[in-house]
Design a protein around this nucleic acid. Structure first.
Lengths: 242, 242
DNA sequence: TGTACATCAGTGAACGCGCGTTCACTGATGTAC
DNA sequence: TGTACATCAGTGAACGCGCGTTCACTGATGTAC
């Protein structure tokens, strides 16, 4: 990884003869602000990197993170007051990833036939592309750090509620009570979490994609699809009450 | 908690005039062996206690455990070579608790009508009675310690397989393929894990049973029952293939 | 039964190490005029 | 445009602390005869 602190030359040069103004001031400072931004990113990346390698957030030390980011320990405090604060920034970032997945799933529109296979495909692809965010969330969910744990839990509940709203639009669920929609969305989210866990676990044995972990991934995806298809079979037979 | 090392008088006195023999030898040593056993237990209990308070296994130090157990740090090594080894002892112990739950559930015999409510009741009761073991497993599942994590994961898979065998005895599942039985058992186990997580999370806000956490527990149990009933509705409609 | 010796669970002191946090500092970037 | 000053991201040294591990030890328990 190494040091992130090399001067980056801005290609959009800052019109040297323009009048000075508050806006101008912030533009002229961009190089310094950019350096700051890069160090902050390097710290976040270093933490994600360590956690993707299987270390728990609890055993990440401030010194290890700064070492991996290529800065001195004291520099950490220019960006975060504590490791907890860095962790919360990662929660926020990871939830954006999760929501982008939900958005992608929504965009397909309602094609019930392939809906399940498509959703599972999106899930598996997202975990592959944003493995570090998912590994972070999977760990922090059960971590020893109460601040992180509660943050992730409440975000998960929110996510399940959003999903409940989404699925309420399907005609077959029109007459379900809110509680029953939450129950069903909860079941989907729980199945999703279990799938994520299983994929991460399978890919943790090796580094990078190989045929072995790809086969394991396909097997996990097939089982998840079956479970969702089974649940879907029940939906027409459910008598919703509260 | 305090020191565990007080001499315990054995009430079953060791027949003083009997001939010496290998058996006799071990009986006469019982007081020393008992002291050893008690310290070991105190170490395990201290670790469970800390983890039930929300600390992760990763942030448990050998010194904290021995302090809580009332012995000097060096005494730890008379019982375990490392914290990892203590963790594995806890995995083993916790799995016994889990299996005792499965045994209790089996003993009811097949009464499909109340089966779901009964099973959820047993689960909730067991989590209440052995909260520390469940809290340990819930945490270690996603802990940063690879040894513990893999131990729990493989035990969980074994547990799901046992459950698959159990449910294969239900007439309605007679013609299901092995893969489909594993899939269904997996779904049950995942729902169970989510329920355990939710109960532990709800009870972590307060200490001891109070009306608030009891209400939360009842709500969680009701949602789990609904989810299992939903899944059960699908079973007759599933066309099992492999 | 009484005595001399063996075992071994737990002790207490010591070690070197990585940790989080503090502080005055440096020097490149940015601003004022 | 050129110069003098301000800002502030990152530095390097220092601190006290809890950690895991080692070691010779103590003294109660257990064994041999």
């Amino acid at each position: 990884m190494g040091s992130v602190n090399r001067r980056t030359q801005s290609s959009t040069s800052p019109r040297p003869h323009a009048a000075r103004s508050p806006t101008q001031r912030s533009v002229e400072r961009r190089s310094q602000a950019e350096r700051r931004r890069q160090t902050r990113r390097a710290l976040l990346d270093a933490a994600l990197e360590q956690m993707d390698r299987g270390f728990g957030f609890d055993s990440l030390s401030l010194r290890r993170v700064t070492r991996a980011a290529g800065v001195v320990p004291a520099a950490f405090y220019r960006h975060f007051a504590s490791m907890d604060e860095l962790g919360l920034a990662l929660v926020e970032e990871s939830m954006l990833t999760l929501r982008s997945m939900l958005r992608e799933a929504r965009e397909g529109g309602p094609e019930p036939d392939h809906l399940i296979a498509r959703s599972v495909g999106i899930l598996v692809a997202h975990v592959g592309e944003h493995r570090r965010h998912f590994a972070f969330m999977a760990h922090a969910r059960a971590s020893g750090n109460a601040v992180l744990r509660h943050a992730i839990r409440s975000e998960t509940k929110l996510f399940a509620s959003e999903l409940a709203t989404d699925i309420s639009r399907f005609p077959i669920l029109r007459d379900w009570t809110t509680a029953d929609l939450q129950m069903l969305a909860g079941l989907f989210v729980e199945t999703m979490i279990a799938t994520i866990d299983a994929i991460l676990e399978a890919s943790s044995w090796t580094t990078g994609p190989d045929s072995l972990s790809q086969a394991a991934e396909a097997r996990i995806a097939r089982q998840t699809e079956k479970q969702l298809r089974l649940i879907a079979l029940a939906i027409p037979h459910w008598r919703s009450t509260d």
